[in-house]
Structure formats: structure tokens, C-alpha cells
Design a protein around this nucleic acid. Sequence first.
DNA 1: CTGGGGATGGGGCCC
DNA 2: AGGGCCCCATCCCCA
Length: 249
Amino acid sequence: MPRSFLIKKHQSTKKTNCGRLKSKTEGKARHYFILSESESNYWSRYATQTRNLILVIGAQQPTESYTQMDLKFQYVVGNHMRRKSLLPQSLPFLALFPATPPGDSSRESFECLEYHKEYLSFSGMAMHKQRQCAWSSKKFFSCKYCEKEYISLGALKMHIRTHTLPCVCKLCGKAFSRPWLLQGHIRTHTGEKPFSCLHCSRAFADRSNLRAHLQTHSEVKKYQCGSCFKTFSRISLLCKHQETLCPLV
DNA sequence: CTGGGGATGGGGCCC
DNA sequence: AGGGCCCCATCCCCA
């Protein structure tokens, strides 16, 4: 039963291995903890026996304060909290948090979503994960120029272009990561502006800039401050307003 | 300080 | 696999 979750780490617990897991569908946030391998073995057995934790398996540990991830999870019914101080940093990301009784979910089996194997206990599946799945850091494709990691080779290659900048402008020598970025740059030399505004005579070299321009024709500004209700044409202007200028924040 | 234009970056998706 | 394209975002500059 895979579900999509939004992970948001608590600011107050930023430096610990815990945070909150928020279900996009249910809208409820729950605390989560990240476990070491030995701890995950222990807690998976514990959870299976006592049915009082939810265990969450993800492809990677959340590294930013606000990360969207698809997580596969299994419910184990009950309620339990663990002290944060006992939780070291670890990979792969395995998390647990106190459960909300999900009806008759105790009948659910545990499926390895990569190998499509079904297990009667979570610990059984966890064992399989450790032995058979490419579930360790080896699975990630690491950039040799920086510390970024990607789950697909294609994504990594695309990223590496941002270091190698293979697309060079013949007119000025400026280099870009993608051909279409170079294409957009060349328009700054030629003056070509293929994106025209339907409401006025202006034209733009870049579609995004036309889109931003279209907001200036809109009577209803898209971005509104939640405190003073002032509206803005760009998200950047709203952010700036909320950070420093809004009298009600 | 505000609003808008110009230029650019990067992830994701499709073919 | 790679290119093209889309969308979103950001930064800088200027009026």
C-alpha cells in the first residue's frame, strides 16, 4: 500500500535524526526517527511482535529541511515513542513513528516493492532488503565533481553537464549545460524574440519571461500574503515581502 | 522600496 | 540514451 508523503523536519529538531512525517492525503503530521541498521533490525522485530509502531522505508534519507519523497510503508498498530538521543545517523533511510490504528491493517502483508516479494513479517522483508536489494548507498550514482547523488544514471549525466558545460556559444565563448540554454543565450545576440504577448505588443526571448510578463496584465495577482492579504505578481516578491516587509508577520 | 524585464539554472517528462 | 521542451525558480539590473 504505497502512499505519498511529504517530509518536513522540525526546526527545533533540525540537528537530530527525527522530524515529522506528513501525509499529503490525510494531512496529519507524525514524528519520525531515523534508525541505524542494528536498530532497525531490533525495532522491526519489536514492531512486528507488539504492533505498536509504523515503520517507514524510503530510498534515501531526507537531506534538506523540506523534501518530497515517495515512501512505502506498513502499519503496525499501537503507540510508542523513542528517545531521540539514542538515534545515530544512518543510511539507508528507515524510520518509525507512533501508529494511528488503521482499521484492520494488521492483516496486511509486507511486500518488497522492488522485487515484488511478499513477506508475512516486516522483519522478514527487512532481512530480504539487506541481503538482496540494491538498497545501500551503492545504488546511488554519485557526481565526481560535487557531493550530489542521483538514483538514475541519466539524472546524474544531466547533472554532470552543469559542471562540464559542453554547449559553448561561438559568438562570445560563454558555456552552458544544455543546448536549449545556449539557444536562449544566442537570442540575446540575435535579438530574436519568438514569444509574443497576446495583450500588448511586447515580445520575449524566453517563454518563462513571457509568463512572468503575463502576470502584469492580470488583475488578480497570483501570490497572496497570508497575513496582510497583499497580492504579488511573483513568488519572489511575495517571499521578500514576508521575510522583511510585511507589518503583520 | 516596488515592480518588471532579462538572463540563466536545473529537474522532470516525452519522444 | 540523449535531445527537446516545459515548468519553476533565482539573480541581477533598472525605472
